[in-house]
Design a binder for these strands. Structure first.
Lengths: 197, 197, 197, 197
DNA sequence: AATGAATGAGGGTTCATTCAT
DNA sequence: GATGAATGAACCCTCATTCAT
């Protein structure tokens, strides 16, 4: 890649970054091309030269975001050793994302026409990683072996999509205590956990 | 109520119902007043005569929806006797709502300027009902008494806001089995429940 | 006229009065039928039953106003004896009108389709009165006999149409002194008046 | 100035000119953006790109007009030597304006939100020029020194605001004779002027 | 005769996108 | 390749007026 192309890629990246932030902050419908152009310090037409349309820009932005998250996620799974650590890390990755762009990511996905892509990505990449993780935990006796794979994924999703504002409010209280409680709820639900008996 | 008023109330109701459905289906921004008018079988101006503005119509529609849900909720709590039944009912109320208007209700609330109203409503009406329910369950030993009120509310919220599409997909499988599993997760988390030991 | 008709006429009068005030205050274009209805305490349709259209209501309102002013004017001319008194009264009638509805009367006339009527009324009724007045004053030596009728009318009009806000501001100062000065200007212009020589 | 700017300025000027004419002819309320766009040979949106809103366009148009008139006025005062010439020129400037846009300028000003600006402009720019002119004329004995500044300004305003249609009608008669008469009225009022005695 | 309800015909404004330099 | 300027297609909302009771 020569110098010229590098500059070009930088511009594209600047546009994408700005667009992502704006989309996440305000929702796709409330972001004008004009805003993205201003944020990236380019003209509106430059955006069209690079991306063709707003919809297209949105798609590219989301794809990049998903890929990035996927790599991060895979690395994390390798890094953490025990099941509990992994679960904890998954939940906190979600929290971090939520803190940065409170729940508009989901809205962004909806506005996009990437359903097929996203589903495929999910099925072929994310889910296998999780299934492996659960399989191992069930073998180790860390997870109730009676629960089906699909239910486990669903359960995890429930925890990964908890309402952010509420969570953030909670975490402004006794953070360590609350974290313990959440993990407890995740592993033992409402019942009294064995170690307390 | 005279003839005029009866007709008027009917029209207003027709507009509200149509507006609610459209808002929930497509998102507020993607619904034109023209669409609502066509759905309700009136002219656009009639909508303005009744509601003043799109924003106002949105507010009224949401307020009505919330109040309705609240009454339904209160009645349900009185009807169900045990804690488990109540929890089950709560989750299934949410599911029913989700089935009818997949997760755009939240988006509607965001577009509205009812934040203050909603928060107050939540704090003064919904939450007291839930706190009472949990208190009683903790006294009865049905719920771990070490868990704080705020954490219990948060936990319930997690379950009430689980991702709909996934849930609907799940329920197209073995419904009874899955329901049992969800309740188990809610009460015992990932751990092996006592009765299975 | 029976009781029924009397009530009806009262309603019409109430509508006209309200309409006149509103038209004069805000300008015809900025007054909605709705406003007039509210001011008169009737429904919009009642206004249509009585007047047929906004334009028509405007016409009737103006006609009535002009006729009233004409009668008042005629009476005043009979009442005042000397030419100076008459001129003074003319100017002050104009001022009074201006104080009540600052310069929107002219705008009202423009919005109406009464040009023909107004011109005829002017020519056949108002102007003859004024011409008589000037003729007499010229015969008495109170007015320069070299000035033509049309120029005299024009000169009078100049004084009757002076800018209101400025005048009102002036009158908040030394009223008596200013009134004297205006009369002096009218009769002697910028030159030093004879009595001061 | 590059090619872009030149074209842009031309377009802006074309829009302003067209807007001014239309506003003056029909009154602000009766001019649609669509009309202005058609007159200037651009699309409606171009007008919004340049001026932001109808109200803003009106303001800019008025401001430009006022500034232009001010410069013209100042130049004229320098050009004319004697007091009488100046007064005559002032009156005829007004007449010319009236001939081009019969008394809708005032209406335009009313519709605008420039009251503060106009008042300041008046007080800081126009009035000082006139005060100087009168001061000098009073020193020279051309004007009755007993008349206060405010009254002189008011008197001049009266003459500058005389009813246009009437004046135009008059001027279709013996123009030179009438002009002489008006000047006479201005300087000597209704009384017999000294030179005729 | 009077009213509550409804409406047709517009008018201002916005925004993604294209044109011309 | 990048930009300033221009635009078509909508959308919200208003108001004089008519309909139905």
């Amino acid at each position: 890649m020569n110098g010229y192309q590098r500059v070009k890629e930088k511009k594209k990246a600047a546009i994408k970054n700005g667009a992502f932030s704006l989309f996440a902050e305000r929702g796709v419908k409330d972001v004008k091309i004009e805003d993205i152009a201003a944020t990236a310090g380019v003209s509106q037409v430059t955006i069209y030269n690079h991306f063709g349309s707003k919809e297209n820009l949105l798609s590219e932005v989301i794809k990049e975001y998903i890929l990035e998250k996927y790599e991060e996620f895979k690395a994390m799974l390798l890094d953490k050793k025990t099941f509990k650590e992994k679960i904890e890390a998954i939940i906190f990755m979600k929290i971090e994302a939520a803190r940065l762009h409170p729940d508009t990511i989901a809205a962004m996905l909806k506005e996009s026409n990437l359903n097929a892509f996203l589903q495929q990505f999910q099925e072929e990449r994310f889910i296998p990683l999780l299934i492996d993780m659960f399989d191992e935990a069930q073998k180790n006796g860390e997870v109730n072996p009676a629960i089906s794979n699909e239910m486990l994924l669903f359960y995890l999703d429930i925890f990964r999509n908890f309402p952010q504002e509420k969570f953030m409010a909670l975490m402004r209280g006794d953070k360590i205590q609350h974290t313990k409680e959440i993990m407890q709820l995740f592993f033992y639900g409402l019942s009294v956990p064995p170690e307390n008996k």
